[in-house]
Amino acid sequence: MADETMEEGGNPTGVVKKFMYVNRRAPYGTVYPLEGLEVVLIGAAFEQDVSMAFVDDGVYQLKKGQDTAETGMKNFSPAYRALEMYDVEKLYAEKESLEARGLTQDDLLVSVEVLSTAELTELMEQQDVILNY
């Protein structure tokens, strides 16, 4: 039972910092996206102000219709739809990254706020902690 206390997390100090996770890699070519997602899910237990930004190939993580059955890899894309239940509600995608890949909001499996490069720059400047995956 002791372990599960850990799992429940909470925020005994009451200090809330702004954490941004910047996702820049396509989902299956490297382990970073999955590891990054797990860090977000674990970190969510500690009641911080969490956001996720999808930049460069990171926008491919949110592409609808992923089906890994024939590759033998786990399709973890449905987990992005669970983020809301983990109180991770601020998802951003960079407009330039989407456009460069011919993607629009309609191609994505969760709704995100699409930001210009300049808007994302400003948002990053406001963070206490930025983690890249």
Binding site: R24, V55, D56, E94, E96, T117, L120, T121, E122
Partner: peptide, 12 residues
């Protein structure tokens, strides 16, 4: 890799 390009695009 494009890491430096992305940095140069997004750094204030």
């Amino acid at each position: 890799k494009g890491s430096l390009d992305t940095c140069l695009r997004l750094a204030k």
